[in-house]
Each structure stands twice: as C-alpha cells, then as structure tokens.
C-alpha cells in the first residue's frame, strides 16, 4: 500500500470510528503499521476534525482515538523499530485539536477531553494535579458574575501563541472551556424565561431539527448513540483500574506482577479497617458453618 492509499483508507477508518476499545485500538494499530507514511496520515486526522460536516460525536471519538494512538505509540516504541511515531505531531497540534473537538459554545465533549487529557499527562510526565483540582472547582470571578448579570456572552476562546508546552497550553484551554460552560449555564439560568407550558422533547433537549444542516445541535439518534458511546468509554476508563500487563514470552506468573500488583499495592490495615475486616469475616464464618453438616467450630 503506498502512502496515498494508506491515507485514504485511514481517513475512511476515522470517519467510521466507534468508541469501542477494539475499534480504537485497531485504528491506532493501522496508523502505527503505516507510520512511515506519517506525513500523509497525520493530516487526515486534522482534516476530519476540521471538517464541518463531521458530527461532534465522531470528533469526540477521534479525540479518544488520539489518546489510544499516543498510548500505543509509546508501547510500540519499546521496540527499536519504532521511534515514537505521531507523538511529536500530535502533541504540537493538541491545542488546535482540542478547539476542534470543543467548538464555540458547544461543550458536550468537555468531560471526555478532560479524561483523555488526564491520561495523556501521565505519558508526557506533566503533573496535572493542579489542573484537575481547578477543573473541578467553581472558577467564576466576581467580574464574571457581574458580566453574567449584564447578559454579556462569554468571550470567544481563541488559540494564543503562548510558547508554553502544548500540553500545558491545552490544559489552560480546557480550564477556560470549563469556565465558559459554567458561565453560560448561569447566564442561561438568569436570563431565560421559566416555561410553565408542556415542553416538547424537541425543545427540552434542544434536538436538532431535521432541516437544520449546520450541525451545532444533536439529533435524537445522535444523543442516544452518544449515551451508548459514553457508556463504552466509561467501561474503558474502568478497565485501567484492573489491567495487569504480563510479558508475552513467560508462560507463568512473574515476580514483577507480585511486586507491582501485590507487594506495592497492599498495606497493613489500620485499626479501623481491621475491625471492619474481622466483622466481615465473622459474618462469613456463619455462612461457612452453615455449609457443613457437622459442627466444625
């Protein structure tokens, strides 16, 4: 397959991407397999994000794909054959990519982006504790509140060339986006009329009209499929809690697993934990005793 063919196929894959882990990983592996055509493949990612006809849902999925791709690229690069493909390009364009996934006032993807950004920070060894904390706080200032009272829309968020590390810059953008969504919500609460009539589903969820082609709002089908997708993404995020990586070439359990998942994870119980533990065991013992026919203890 030549570079051009690879790029066309890759573009097709991205357009049909679903957030199932397998699907994301397959796409990432395709990209890595053709990493010598990175110069052709990478722009396909940007193209799809900048294409106004592509649904926001798909863009969110592409963002999750980017996370998986970076993840896999780091993993592949343990072999000498690979030299961290895509990573530099993706990192540099990250702020731009983020704004494409979170366009203007449409912040439906904000939580997914936040989760991905958190994971990415680990790879790039960026300490994101402070950002995470700020993300979860109410960040509106008195000045903002005054503006809300005057019903002034939140200023548009644009890219500024701050010369910062692109990841840190992305965090900055995300925090402003978060603030924007808090701001706009309050503004909406303050300045819109309370409706006492029956509200149609269409209006209640601001569903997209069939004739509306602009793509700012989501259709009912899109919302439902998005709920499915988010459920999938949530499952994936939970997976990180239990995944155990084991070497391929060893056919039994290894000391590394013991060290990482048992010895380092387990700590002696506190008094309180211990009491709770003993209580649980006592309850369990009753079940155990009832299991045998003869008296054991």
């Amino acid at each position: 397959m030549d570079s051009f063919e690879a790029a066309t196929q890759f573009s097709q894959i991205l357009r049909n991407l679903t957030p199932a882990v397998q699907n994301l990983t397959r796409a990432a592996h395709f990209a890595l397999k053709h990493s010598d055509s990175e110069d052709y493949l990478f722009p396909s990612i940007l193209d799809i994000l900048n294409d106004p006809s592509v649904e926001l849902n798909t863009k969110s999925t592409v963002f999750q794909f980017i996370e998986v791709l970076i993840n896999e690229s780091f993993y592949y690069s343990r072999q000498p054959k690979f030299n961290y493909p895509y990573i530099q390009n993706l990192k540099t364009s990250l702020p731009k990519i983020m704004l494409a996934v979170l366009p203007t006032t449409s912040n439906t993807n904000i939580y997914n982006v936040y989760t991905s950004l958190k994971n990415l920070s680990k790879h790039f060894k960026v300490d994101c504790c402070e950002f995470v904390e700020r993300f979860n706080l109410d960040s509106l200032t008195d000045e903002d509140r005054a503006h809300i009272d005057q019903d002034i829309p939140f200023p548009e968020i644009r890219l500024e060339d701050s010369g910062e590390d692109p990841l840190v810059e992305s965090w900055g953008l995300l925090l402003r986006k978060k603030k924007q969504s808090q701001y706009e919500r309050l503004r909406l609460l303050k300045h819109s009329e309370v409706s006492r009539d029956t509200v149609e589903e269409q209006d209640l969820f601001s569903l997209r009209d069939k004739n509306d082609k602009a793509g700012e709002l989501l259709s009912k089908r899109q919302i439902i499929s998005r709920m499915e997708d988010d459920r999938e993404a949530h499952k994936r995020s939970k997976e990180n809690l239990w995944v155990v990586l084991r070497p391929k070439d060893v056919n039994f359990i290894t000391e590394e697993e013991f060290l990482k998942h048992y010895w380092s994870k387990t700590h002696a119980m506190t008094k309180k934990q211990e009491d709770a533990f003993l209580e649980t065991v006592e309850e369990l013992n009753k079940l155990v005793a009832g299991s045998y026919k003869d008296k054991q203890f």
Binding site: Y262, W263, T266, H267, A268, M269, T280, V281, E283, L284
Partner: peptide
C-alpha cells in the same frame, strides 16, 4: 466481601 486468596495472603503477610 473478601479479596481472593492471592490478595488476601499478601494482606495477611503485611
């Protein structure tokens, strides 16, 4: 209610 044997064993060791 309880961990499996592997985790529980290490819990007891600690």
């Amino acid at each position: 209610t309880l961990d499996s044997i592997d985790s529980l064993t290490i819990q007891f060791c600690k």
